[in-house]
């Protein structure tokens, strides 16, 4: 829903909203309460149920594990390793996906040529390709990256394609009337107008890649990575490290998605008023 279009004559209405810090404080309040409740119950259960701390460690053990891995440096190495993989794959995959997707949206022939293979490949989960990439590349970095790139580029391709395809025809007519054609049509009109859809494709691609990279690091022995850490912590029965790593995965994934991807989306979708649901 976009009501702002009608309120054009009173831009000062924004001033009437409560200040940002107060809204943030209120949000934090509602977010914190359930977290505190969960932590309290966790601690009570761990201390009083009699279950072995190896299965269900109390909070201080998890915290100590976290502090330990942080001071030791493995935490940062793992985070760095996972995110580096992710960035490489998202960068390569989104370039491939955006270009082919845009060509598919713009040129009939590209669409005809690619739509079949795209739909077929989209039906194959990236993770199903692990046996294949392991055969091809061995237990190497490339075995992971190739799958991530595969998943990211397909996801971005599908979203870019539909974004470019669903451009309002009247905008293309207007662009032609005002001198855009060929390459300038692409850069000045097709790409920006498909941007909301392209960005939500990036977001989707990131969250898929995030899932896959964790699994991939468990399957393929690499030197550092959050999935790798989970796997080895289980091997050595270091349950508190398993929990600590899960916590790290949850928090960093959430932060990245909120701070980076959300704001990129908000910048285009909200500002331009292109109506598209964020969830």
């Amino acid at each position: 829903m976009n009501q702002s279009g009608y309120m054009a004559k009173s831009p000062t209405d924004d001033d009437l909203e409560p200040p940002a810090w107060r809204r943030l404080a209120k949000d934090a309040y509602y977010v914190l309460i359930p977290i505190v409740v969960v932590l309290v119950f966790w601690q009570m259960f761990a201390k009083m149920s009699g279950i072995s701390p190896v299965l269900f460690p109390p909070l201080e053990n998890i915290w100590n594990a976290l502090v330990h891995t942080a001071t030791e440096g493995t935490l940062w190495a793992d985070l760095g390793g996972t995110f580096l993989r992710l960035f490489k794959a998202v960068a390569a995959g989104s370039v491939i996906g955006t270009i082919i997707g845009a060509l598919m949206g713009y040129f009939r022939d590209w669409e005809r040529a690619f739509v079949g293979p795209l739909n077929f490949l989209l039906a194959i989960p990236g993770t199903a390709l692990f046996p294949l990439t392991m055969i091809w590349f061995g237990l190497t970095e490339m075995a992971i990256l190739s799958i991530l790139i595969y998943e990211v580029s397909l996801t971005v391709m599908a979203n870019t394609w539909s974004g470019v395809k669903s451009i309002d025809v009247s905008l293309i007519r207007a662009a032609r009337a005002f001198g855009a054609n060929g390459a300038s049509m692409f850069w000045r009109v097709l790409l920006p107008s498909a941007m909301p859809s392209i960005i939500s494709g990036y977001r989707l691609a990131f969250s898929r890649a995030w899932r896959i990279v964790i699994i991939a690091e468990m399957l393929v022995s690499v030197s550092a990575g959050l999935g790798y850490r989970l796997f080895w912590a289980r091997e050595f029965f270091q349950t508190e490290i398993v929990y600590a790593t899960l916590l790290t995965i949850g928090i960093t994934g959430l932060l990245f998605e909120r701070l980076v991807l959300r704001s990129a989306e908000a910048m285009t979708v909200n500002r331009w008023g292109t109506v598209r649901e964020l969830e």
């Binding site: 905008l171 005002f178 001198g179 285009t268």
Partner: peptide, 28 residues
Amino acid sequence: LDRGIVFQEFALFPWLTVAENIAFGLKS
């Protein structure tokens, strides 16, 4: 660009500001 067209459905570029929309043809 020897003809300026005004469309019934406005057909403004939503990712450009008022000034940028007006400048579109000049940029071309």
